[in-house]
Amino acid sequence: MAMLSSSLVLGSIQLKNRIVMPPMATSKAEEGKITADLIQYYKEKSADEAIGLIIAEHSYVSMEGKASANQVSLAVDADMEGLKALTNAIHAHHTPVFAQINHAGSAAKAEITGFPPLAPSAVKHPRAKAEELPQAMNTEDLEKVISDFALAAGRAKEAGFDGVEIHSAHGYLLNQFYSPITNQRTDQYGGSLANRIRLHIQIIERIRQTVGGDYPLTLRLGVYDGLENGSTMDEAVQACVMFEKAGLDFIDLSGGLNGYLRPGHSEQGYFQDFSEAVKQQVKMPVLLTGGITEAQAAEALLQAQKADLIGIGRAILKDSKWAEKALNTIK
């Protein structure tokens, strides 16, 4: 049997294959609420029942962490009805779905959130066009963020999501703490790698207290900033080892401050050197995304021990039957 079509256990659930539809923002929510249009989108993507796991688009954990106007909310209990309708629609097609929870940090805009942007340090975001600096987070801000992530994870579980992914990639708040470019703190949350991922560990631990030990939990780590003085491969490996000890069931690797792309790379699976290095040092499964569009390329990455799961984003966005066709191709 091809590895792509083989099953895999993630915490308390078993995936039917190794194909993952990673989070992709649709901008179909309205004032944070799930819409009929959004439910229809996920119905279509899950309809052929060939995707092993869907990780839904990033949802904000608090209003001050909202990244865009039409983003999904997991920030208040009133969101629950729409979220349950969404998970029910996907589960009708026998496909598990995770929620991805996020805080935008300095990538947030005051005109959308109504709050001044918060960040690890008062440092301009590398992709920001405005010159206004974010506010450096204080102890109270940090405690609220830990609580907000845990409460959002609890809502996700109650709404029927099969697991939760913590977003620490693509230049959002936790990625800002991870990267030495945006984290210039001199307290226990800055400096060494252990300090820069202290907030991640505290969030993982608080979520575990909220959802229990058996509920699947993952984290998407932005392993490559593509900028001078950014985070390193060695740090990515060390961080993933520490995340595993803290209670993750698998790790999802992607880009950092510069987003999901890797400048200068167009090969399928363009973070594979990072995923291979991480996979050699952790026991938990590793999810690789990045420009993978062909079933043969996905299978080759698995066979070469570059990863355990393959994220197929843009190809599934373009073709909702991609997974079904891929599994038939590599039989």
Rank of each mutant, 00 (worst) to 15 (best):
S168F: 04
Q100Y: 08
K321W: 03
S12F: 03
K325Q: 15
L227R: 10
P285Y: 12
Q238C: 08
R262N: 14
K283R: 13
E143M: 12
K84F: 02
E81Q: 11
E228W: 04
E158R: 14
T113M: 11
L53K: 13
N175L: 03
K66E: 00
L257I: 08
K124Q: 15
I312Y: 09
F161E: 02
A104M: 03
R262D: 02
G52M: 14
Q280F: 04
L301V: 07
D187T: 05
D273C: 02
N17G: 08
A136I: 05
Q71F: 04
D162Q: 07
P285F: 12
K129P: 01
L248F: 09
I19H: 12
D37V: 01
N183Q: 08
I146K: 15
A298W: 07
D79H: 07
K325M: 08
E30K: 15
L217E: 14
S27Q: 13
Q40A: 15
P117R: 00
I39P: 06
I310C: 04
T35C: 06
G114H: 04
V76K: 04
T182N: 03
G255H: 01
L309Y: 01
P263N: 09
G114D: 05
Q188W: 05
G291T: 15
D225V: 01
A246N: 04
L302M: 11
T95C: 15
K331C: 00
H93M: 06
R196G: 06
G256A: 11
A153C: 06
H200A: 10
G255M: 02
G255D: 02
I330W: 02
N138P: 07
E276N: 03
S320F: 12
Q184F: 04
N70S: 06
P116H: 14
P216R: 13
H58L: 01
K283S: 15
G32V: 01
K245E: 15
A75D: 05
T218W: 00
S168T: 09
D225L: 00
A326I: 11
K45E: 04
